[in-house]
Amino acid sequence: MPTPTFRVGGEHEVRRLGFGAMHLPTGPADRDESRAVARRAVELGVELIDTAYMYGGGANEELLAEALHPYPANLLVTTKVGVEGSGPPADWRLDGRPHVLRAQVDNALRRLRVERLELLQLHRVDPEVPLDDQVGALALLREDGKIGHIGLSEVSVSELSRARAITPIASVQNRYHLFDREHEPVLAACEAADIAFLPWRPIAHGKAGADPDVTAVAAELGATPTQVCLAWLLARSPVVLPIPGTARRAHLEENVAAARFGLTTAQFDRLDRLGRPTV
């Protein structure tokens, strides 16, 4: 069985299967159910929850605080800054200017009702602002005690290396799943440096259930295709911390239960071949 926990930043030991809060609706009609989903995640043993300012312009952060504050001592809530806008994702833009990052961190502290963000991730690298300025601003906030650990999202190996030359990096959050291995080199770099790798969109919805190899392994395990995809991620590397998201308690319970399924070497290899580039 894969190692069940990982120590983020060498400090926060969490169960490796986390929860992405992005899909939780924050409107009045759905708010009670969204809070119930967040609470159920903690009841099921989830110890890592991912949110971001971009998710509703801070509304997702406020929802988590309503549901979970005061937070359990073993719960790591991570948020992200570095984008500005309102409304749908298409209306947002990257903004990594230091004064914007500082303001967003202060607002995240207020919304999450904490004095320190234990893990704060740069949502995207703003190409219009030097990387040194963006990461440097977060490093100064860390020195001020407002951030515990710094992470990055959607970065290349080169960007990760440059950031690490400025300050320690505890996590990387890139798109990655069984059928999408674009960021395999980044995962390798994280594994070499013991950096947590949080794959967003960890499940290939629609594709996993139609793939005969995935469904065959699912039948062998008595699992669902979704659980097989998550089990593969957990087996892929000890630094991988999947953060599947959902707005439904039943789906949440299905996701969390994936940690119970261990793949045999043959099953892992059969799945692993699916996303490898053909020569």
Rank of each mutant, 00 (worst) to 15 (best):
P4L: 04
G9S: 13
G10P: 08
T26Q: 05
P28M: 03
D30F: 01
R35N: 14
V37D: 09
R40S: 10
L44C: 13
L48G: 15
I49P: 05
I49A: 10
D50F: 00
T51N: 07
Y55W: 08
A59T: 10
A59F: 10
A65E: 13
A67E: 11
V83S: 15
S86P: 12
A90S: 11
D91I: 02
Q104E: 12
V105A: 15
V114P: 06
R116K: 05
L117I: 12
L120K: 00
V129M: 09
D144N: 09
I147H: 07
G148T: 01
I150M: 08
E154S: 11
S156E: 14
V157C: 07
L160S: 03
A165D: 14
V172A: 06
F179H: 04
V186F: 11
A193Y: 03
A196Y: 01
P202F: 03
H205K: 10
D213Q: 00
T215K: 09
E220F: 07
L221F: 06
P225D: 02
V228Y: 00
S237F: 06
V240Q: 03
P242G: 12
P242K: 11
P242A: 10
P242E: 08
R249N: 13
L252V: 05
E253F: 04
E254P: 05
A257G: 06
A258Y: 09
F268C: 14
D269Y: 14
R273P: 14
R273F: 12
